[in-house]
Amino acid sequence: MENFKLLEYLYHLNISPIYINIFGAFFFAFVIVQVAIPKIIQISHKKGLMDDPNERSSHSHKVPTLGGVALFFGLVVSTSIFATELGVNYAFFLSAITILFFVGLMDDLLVVAPDKKLYAQIISTTFIIFGSGIMINSLYGLFGIYGIPYWLGVLLTLIVFIVLINAYNLIDGVDGLASGIGIVISLAFIFIFYRIYDYSIGILAVSVVAVLLSFLKFNLSKNKRIFMGDTGSMVIGFILTFMAIRFLYVSGLPSYSIQAAPVILLFIFCIPVIDTLNVFVIRILNKTNPLHPDKNHLHHQFLELGFNHFQTSICLVIINVIFVIIGYTLRYIEINKLFLIFLLLSVSFVVIVKYFTIKKKKLTK
């Protein structure tokens, strides 16, 4: 009865239900993470569920790694209540992120072989493709390619999911970076999906912003520090990719027809994409295994330049924001020309960072 009176009161205030859902999704997601993480930190310290620093780590003390547990529950509760328009898609979406949650949790607790994480990503992506029908079916003229066969669309969607999930995971190397980039990407999707009236996905993006903002308080804390771990990075990376594929899928509908959509996504995901390509190229040039971990990531190079964790994260987040603004401003340019602009900007950014890193090394010798 009290709930009915509240809704009746809000109705008389002329407040749209969509704004109630936006506020509710943000509030529930934010509060759940705020309440859950202190308990998770307490349990992690008692049970010794901590990340031990190694030669590749950018931290020097043991830190809890189960922040992703809070992120997962915050997202599930808020979207279950307020993203009701996801409909049948939500069942497959929830199944997909639950699989990744448990595999990520096992990896944070026991360490799971990379191939098992890959299998989990493939299964989760398959749920989305065949369960909801959301997949890549066109490149909108990029490289002269428009519509693509169904089987190729399935394969391409699978590859994009795997690449972007792991690209997001790879940037989770300094405090605040993965969360900051995730917030920027989600804000871009909030803008996009509300512009095209896809409110359910917009509310999903709002929930992601809420849990990441709430998590940042602890990730950047000195006394209550926690990492999101593979549990968090895989779940958040999957959701961000899901929103990207949804955007591509919707862009091909006659009512929207957003021709530059694939390249706009490159601008939105610029830091994860540039960082992944950068380390792969360096490893290949050095004749080492492209999948072998090293310290050639962008955040490692910023640390070598003398930036601390917070400064590194701020710089890379700002770069991502600049790319998003450029991509949006130039969205009406022919797609192949826009791709060339993205390529030139990306290469220029990497070369500049590398130049100053090499210069700093020479000065310190």
Rank of each mutant, 00 (worst) to 15 (best):
Phe4Pro: 00
Leu7Phe: 13
Leu7Arg: 10
Glu8Tyr: 08
Leu10Pro: 14
Tyr11Phe: 14
His12Pro: 03
Asn14Asp: 13
Ile15Cys: 14
Ile15Ser: 10
Tyr19Arg: 13
Phe23Asp: 07
Gly24Gln: 11
Phe28Gly: 00
Phe28Asp: 00
Val33Asn: 04
Val33Met: 06
Gln34Arg: 15
His45Cys: 01
Lys47Gln: 14
Leu49Ile: 11
Asp52Pro: 07
Asn54Ala: 08
Asn54His: 10
Ser57Pro: 11
Ser58Trp: 08
Val63Tyr: 04
Pro64Trp: 02
Thr65Ser: 15
Gly68Ser: 14
Ala70Phe: 06
Phe73Leu: 03
Gly74Lys: 01
Gly74Arg: 02
Leu75Tyr: 01
Ser80Phe: 06
Ser80Ile: 05
Thr84Pro: 04
Gly87His: 11
Val88Ala: 14
Tyr90Met: 09
Phe92Val: 07
Leu94His: 08
Ala96Val: 08
Thr98Trp: 05
Thr98Cys: 08
Leu100Asn: 00
Phe102Leu: 06
Phe102Val: 12
Phe102Arg: 09
Val112Ala: 08
Pro114Lys: 05
Lys117Cys: 07
Tyr119Leu: 10
Ile128Ala: 11
Ile134Ser: 09
Met135Val: 02
Leu139Thr: 00
Tyr140Ala: 05
Leu142Phe: 07
Leu142Glu: 00
Phe143Glu: 00
Gly147Lys: 13
Gly153His: 01
Val160Trp: 10
Phe161His: 03
Phe161Ala: 01
Val163Met: 09
Leu164Gln: 02
Ile165Val: 14
Tyr168Val: 06
Asn169Asp: 12
Leu170Arg: 07
Ile171Leu: 15
Asp175Asn: 15
Ala178Phe: 13
Val184Arg: 04
Phe189Thr: 03
Arg195Tyr: 13
Arg195Leu: 09
Tyr197Arg: 09
Gly202Val: 02
Val206His: 01
Val208Ile: 08
Val211Arg: 00
Val211His: 05
Leu212Met: 13
Leu213Met: 15
Ser214Tyr: 11
Lys217Thr: 15
Phe218His: 15
Phe218Ile: 15
Asn219Gln: 09
Lys224Met: 13
Arg225Thr: 07
Asp230Gln: 10
Asp230His: 07
Gly232Cys: 09
Gly232Val: 07
Val235Asp: 00
Gly237Asp: 09
Ile239Tyr: 01
Thr241His: 01
Thr241Lys: 02
Thr241Cys: 03
Phe242Thr: 00
Phe242Gln: 01
Arg246Asn: 10
Leu248Arg: 09
Leu248Thr: 02
Leu248Glu: 05
Leu248Ile: 03
Ser251Thr: 04
Gly252Leu: 01
Pro254Asp: 01
Tyr256Arg: 10
Ile258Tyr: 11
Leu266Cys: 09
Asp275Val: 01
Thr276Leu: 06
Arg283Phe: 04
Leu285Glu: 12
Lys287Leu: 03
Lys287Met: 04
His292Gly: 09
His292Ser: 15
Pro293Ser: 11
Asp294His: 12
Phe302Val: 08
His309Trp: 15
Ser313Phe: 11
Ile314Leu: 14
Cys315Asn: 13
Cys315His: 07
Ile318Ala: 15
Val321Phe: 13
Arg331Ala: 10
Glu334Trp: 14
Lys337Ala: 10
Phe339Asn: 00
Leu344Arg: 04
Val347Met: 06
Val351Pro: 11
Ile352Ala: 13
Leu363Tyr: 09
Thr364Tyr: 03
